[in-house]
Design a protein around this nucleic acid. Structure first.
Lengths: 226, 226
DNA sequence: GTCGATTGTCACGAGATTGTCACAAGCACA
DNA sequence: TGTGCTTGTGACAATCTCGTGACAATCGAC
């Protein structure tokens, strides 16, 4: 059974969420402050974490960032709970990398739906196909090979990873920060402009498929399928 | 059942509104002065508050501001009732943060419609959809793409954000201050007239859908869905 | 070690985006 | 009808963003 870690400093919110998750068949662990939440996340390795932004001492943002930096917990989906609309962008944004958010007040039933959806999605992502095809481009993941209309293309390790991430989330705009997280995996601090350089190298090598890799000004990059 | 708190010092207005809300299936609480309204808001935590501007002693503006400052009541949508057009901008303004307004005299049926809309809206806002559709307009947030009758439209980052906010709160008037807060966020001081310019740019690009983005003189802008 | 490939960073410049302004047009109200 | 205030419009300069080429650091094979 999947365990979900719920972190909130308000006892009744904790109660409400736990109750509903248990009703929905999940196993639930709870925590009321950031430091404890971190410890529990590391030891339990839950399938998902629901994390309130407002926490005493170490706030939700901190916890999220920390979890994202550690290999063991990096892939655990996080849903942030936030009261203010103005915080939403920060929550989903760049440096943080939470996977979803819910603004308080929320309906418990809706929260459960979100949890299910997020677990489904990461599950699908986990069972990754060996081969990806987008337009004329074919990526063979285990072979680490890319062909364009049957012609083999040669990519370096980083280039391959970047292309893979872009193609996997084909059509969706990926911010530089997100790409850094997924491709570079937080190797020290890498400049966001580095992404640009690698995109250029990808484009150079992609040749006729280069136009499909487009830049969304002020937002990020995206691989288009048409 | 959802409870709505109605605050007005005129007995017959109170009567009229209550009757119509009850007919529409809501549970109604009433209050005739500011201090009492505050107390009831805090204890009942209603789903929505309808608040007359003119109240003995503590006026509607005060009540609204106070409620917005408290965590428990901060998220409760407020509809302000106001007699004078001149007051409208204050009502929707920054420091106040009411969510909608209705000018007296009003048709009770229209008020009920607004109530429904606002309640729907906050519910919809909570479930953060990936795609928004209003009339012929479709906004796909993760793809950062907008289409009008299937035709793709090209928006810059700021334009996209502005359109998104307007469409998310579709039907509700957004003051320039509110738009500045939600779209421009923390960025230094931006002139309120800047909003006008961006609205114009939106209209230019929206083409056939431009008429839906209307201006409410003295108050702000609004995206209409019909 | 040497050599070449890979990688991250930087500076520069073209071009897009953005905020502001001045003025025209429009509306509300006397 | 005129006055004052609000909004639309076009233009423009400042700023920001991104593509590009160059380069030094690092890595890995030999």
């Amino acid at each position: 059974m999947k365990t979900i870690l719920v972190v909130d400093d308000e006892a009744d919110a904790l109660e409400l969420i736990s109750y509903n998750l248990k009703q929905a068949g999940f196993s639930v662990a709870t925590s009321m402050d950031g430091a404890d939440a971190l410890a529990k996340a590391r030891s339990l390795l839950p399938a998902l974490i629901i994390l309130d932004v407002m926490l005493p001492e170490m706030d939700g943002f901190e916890v999220c960032k920390t979890l994202r930096r550690e290999a063991a917990t990096e892939a655990i989906p996080i849903i942030m709970l936030t009261a203010k609309t103005a915080e939403m962008d920060r929550v989903l944004g760049l440096e943080l990398g939470s996977d979803d958010y819910v603004t308080k007040p929320f309906s418990p039933r809706e929260l459960v739906l979100r949890v299910r959806k997020l677990l489904d999605r990461t599950h699908v992502a986990a069972q990754q196909k060996d081969q990806l095809r987008v337009g004329d481009l074919l990526i063979d993941v285990p072979r680490h090979a890319v062909t364009l209309r049957g012609r083999p293309l040669d990519f370096t390790a980083t280039e391959f990873k970047l292309l893979l991430v872009l193609v996997q989330r084909c059509g969706l705009v990926q911010s530089r920060e997100r790409l850094l997280r997924d491709v570079w995996e937080y190797e020290r601090d890498v400049d966001t402009r580095t992404v640009d350089t690698h995109v250029r190298r990808l484009r150079d090598k992609l040749g006729r498929a280069a136009p499909f890799l487009d830049t969304v000004r002020g937002v990020g990059y995206r691989y288009m399928d048409e």
